[in-house]
Nucleic acid binder design. Structure first.
Lengths: 178, 178
DNA sequence: ACCTGAACACCGTTCAAGT
DNA sequence: ACCTGAACACCGTTCAAGT
């Protein structure tokens, strides 16, 4: 699954190949089908674990500090890290782009990841923008998440980490990011 | 090329199939290779024309009105239109996600599209935010473009046009969009 | 319980052959 | 100038067969 995750993050769900994956881990492609009957099963499992890992990271981040700056820095850093690491993308970001090609079970997991991000960001906004209504907070959280994913997408298209850093910086300067 | 463009916008570059495309337009896949020797040639041609169409649209928009609101509404509307139209994505946005799989000639065209957007937005910012330096304007233009692409990406992942509208609205409220 | 080889219908690509 | 059929090595998937 480690290898498969990296493949999807660099080449997308459509770019993930059972045969290539099998070669990488030293078994035959038919053997992978024993563990994950279809590509959809593998994709869903990948997105599920990705979301679980993200949840653990974000929980640690929030409990490990009470500094808003640390929280947001930690948040934008995960997306930054993917780019630094071989110009990869967020697993669910790249899968969102392929949405129409995604089996139903994969879509569900991608949606769960989106929901996680919006939920976490909404909680952060509860602390730093208490004057807003819950609905306004959720909309801002969604906007922040969308903007960060967009920054990653464009920076990747340029293969330039500076594009990401400058865009995040601009989001901050303009007040979109707390 | 019309059919191919739609295919990429819904399923991505990797989801584009010569055989399926051939069936759709009523010839054999080998015949398409006569016009576009490789998939990269087709992809590059698609991105090139897409950029040309975008350029024409944005030029008309800017010369057809001198109202900033009309300009920005027109800008966010093209990206909105793709979603309304069968939940499609910006051709170059979806290709950015598949960047590592893209042949060099396609990458070049994707970059040209990015550059076009940043250039146009920078010009708009020259009018409405003249106090900024040229460099600041370019960075803001890039941030706006990235945020709009991100909004489209996330809205598509939810198959919900309201997510796009609300996110754009939030960008506006927060001052990211003029 | 886990793996494999062989088969199936797909894919991009090539090329000799047709009009 | 444009198209085609057949071949090549790829793909996900299935399944009978092995340990």
């Amino acid at each position: 699954m480690q290898v498969a995750r990296t493949m999807v993050q660099t080449r997308g769900y459509n770019g993930l190949s059972f045969r290539e994956l099998a070669k990488e881990v030293g078994i035959k492609s038919a053997s992978i089908h024993y563990h994950f009957p279809t590509k959809g099963d593998l994709g869903a499992a990948l997105a599920k674990r990705y979301t679980e890992d993200g949840l653990a990271y974000l929980e640690d981040l929030r409990t490990g500090s009470d500094d808003l700056r640390v929280w947001m820095q930690g948040y934008t850093d995960i997306f930054r890290q993917a780019l630094v690491n071989d110009n990869r993308m967020c697993l669910c970001g790249i899968m969102s782009a392929e949405f129409d090609d995604l089996p139903l079970e994969v879509r569900t997991e991608v949606e769960a990841f989106n929901a996680l991000n919006v939920r976490w960001l909404t909680q952060v906004l509860t602390v730093c923008r208490p004057q807003l209504s819950e609905e306004e907070r959720q909309q801002q959280a969604l906007a922040i998440y969308a903007a960060v994913e967009g920054a990653q997408l464009i920076a990747r298209g340029r293969d330039d980490i500076q594009v990401y850093d400058q865009t995040i910086q601009t989001y901050r300067a303009v007040g979109l990011l707390p």
